[in-house]
Structures are given as C-alpha cells and as structure tokens.
C-alpha cells in the first residue's frame, strides 16, 4: 500500500488545486473558529446575555473539542471538493485506464482512493485537534480530554463526506458535473432533513411518538447530526420540545452509509468498463 500511496503523492504534490484547496481549508478552520471565538469573547460575554450564560466559554477545555469539531465541520466540503477533483481528473485525463494498463489492479486502484479519503479525513482531524489545543491553551482552564469523542465524530463526518465525494465522482466521472451534483445533493438532503425534523417534532408533540430526529438518518445528516454546538445554558430551554437524540442509532446509520458508499464505489471501479 505504501508504494501505491507514494504514486498518489506524485500525482498531487505538484498540483496547484491541491495546494490551494488544502491551504484554504487549513486557514479556513483557524479563521472560522477565530470568528466564533471573537464573537463569544467580545460580544456575547460583554452583553446582558452573559449573565444567563454564566461565563460560558465554548473554547475552554471540555467544550473546546466539541466547539471546534462542530464549527470546522462546516468546512468539510473543501476536502470533499478536492477529492472530487482528484478522482474525476483521472477520468478526464483517462489516467485511470492508463494506471490499470500499466499494471495496477483494479482492486489496488479502488483501495488507494479509499485510503486517500481516509488520509484526507485523518489530516483534517489532526488539524482540528491542533486548532482546539491552540484555542484552549489560551484560556486558563486545565487540559481535559472530556468531550474528545466529538473529534471522533468530526473524523467520521469528514470520512463520510469524502466517501460520498468519491462515490459521486466514480459515478458521474466529469469534474464540473460531479461537483454540481455533490452540492445539489447536499442542499437537497438538508431540505429533506428539515422536513423530516419538523415531522419528528410534530409526531412527538401530537402523538408522543419519538423516533429521534428523522432527518439525522440521511447519509450526510447522519454524520452531521452527531456534531452540535456545546449545550449552552440557553439551549436547555428549548430541548424539551425536541425529539430525543439517539446518538448510537445515528452513529449506526453514519457507519452504515460509510460502508455502503465505499462498497458501491469499489464495485463501480472494479466491475465497470473504464
């Protein structure tokens, strides 16, 4: 596998889009968190709401893992975009054919793309951890690992997005079209999720049926649903009307989709004409 990854590295290390998107993503994570941090530090905590929030700082230890994971999650479309470009480039340049002709097996080719999704997700997660540490160490609270599971959820979300990106790329094959479908799907799923969430709330309030937020059981939303902003003291006012959060079920769905899309992508690469 190492020599296959080395070949992937040769493909991307001089690719400007790779450098540009990576840089944009890394700066983006830091900048987005800095904005949220500034809002809390300079505006919320100096307003009347500060009393209600009782000095709640989302960037202190314990909360920081969840805050940075949740906030950074919004930027995960960038690494997905990068993977779409890298995978569809192979179709555009017909280098996927050439790689097989030159002696890669189709399985190796599929596996290394999956491995890329994993590495990109792991690198994104590593940067989230570093960002969280950088912010948290600027506060006075002592180091704590509590809440680190949210970093795991972030990793799962990153991996899910990446695998969906690879699936769409292997299915659509054209860069622009695949990017379009990815974002349209993302938007469409969010709209459907909103409807399902409203339905879930109605079911709970009118018939006392509580399946959790149904929208969380969709492919992208299942991994989104695991991440949320830390529960501020304000939030507790609203939770009573919300459906129960069945974390384990949502996690199960997220993993199920991950396996499903990995399997479908592999199948497309291994079985179809190139």
């Amino acid at each position: 596998m190492m020599h296959l990854l080395k070949i992937e590295w040769l493909k991307i290390k001089n690719y400007k889009a790779f450098l540009f998107i990576s840089l944009f993503f890394l700066i983006g994570i830091f900048a987005t968190n800095y904005i949220v941090y500034s809002v809390f530090h300079n505006i919320v905590n100096k307003s009347d709401a500060a009393l209600l929030l009782s000095n709640f700082n989302p960037y202190d230890f314990e909360h920081v893992w969840q805050t940075v994971s949740y906030t950074s999650g919004y930027l995960l479309m960038l690494p997905s975009l990068l993977l779409i470009i890298l995978v569809t480039n192979e179709y555009t340049f017909r280098t996927n054919r050439q790689n097989i002709i030159d002696g890669s097996s189709r399985e190796e080719y599929a596996n290394v793309k999956m491995m890329m999704a994993l590495i990109v997700a792991a690198t994104s997660t590593l940067f989230v951890v570093l960002t969280a540490l950088a912010f948290a160490y600027s506060s006075e609270k002592d180091f704590s690992i509590t809440g680190f599971s949210h970093v795991g959820y972030f990793f799962l979300k990153a991996l899910s997005y990446n695998i969906i990106a690879i699936f769409i790329s292997t299915l659509i094959k054209r860069t622009g079209f695949a990017i379009g479908i990815f974002f349209i799907y993302m938007g469409a799923e969010n709209i459907i999720a909103q409807f399902l969430d409203v339905l879930s709330m109605k079911l709970k309030s009118s018939k006392n049926i509580d399946f959790g937020s149904l929208g969380d059981y969709l492919p992208m939303n299942s991994s989104d649903g695991l991440l949320s902003f830390p529960p501020t003291p304000l939030k507790s006012f609203t939770t009573s009307s919300l459906p129960t959060e069945y974390t384990w079920i949502v996690l199960g769905f997220a993993i199920f989709y991950l396996v499903l899309f990995s399997w479908l992508s592999r199948r497309l690469i291994i079985k179809k004409d190139l």
Binding site: H3, K6, I7, L10, K11, N14, Y15, K16, N89, F93, R94, T95, R97, Q98, N99, I100, I101, D102, G103, S104
Partner: peptide, 30 residues
C-alpha cells in the same frame, strides 16, 4: 501487465505534470 509496455488509443497523462513527472508515475506503477 507490468511486463508489457502499452499505448492504447490515446496518450493518457496528467496534464499538469511534466514528461519526467508523468513517467515517474508510470515507473512507480510498473
């Protein structure tokens, strides 16, 4: 297949890489 040198239909290379960089990839696979 690694023992066979093949040109099939069209030249397929990474457009943003040079000849040497492209051939390094070919050599890596082979």
């Amino acid at each position: 297949r690694k023992r066979i040198g093949t040109l099939l239909e069209t030249p397929n290379f990474y457009h943003y890489l040079s000849a040497v960089q492209n051939l390094k990839i070919t050599a890596g696979i082979k």
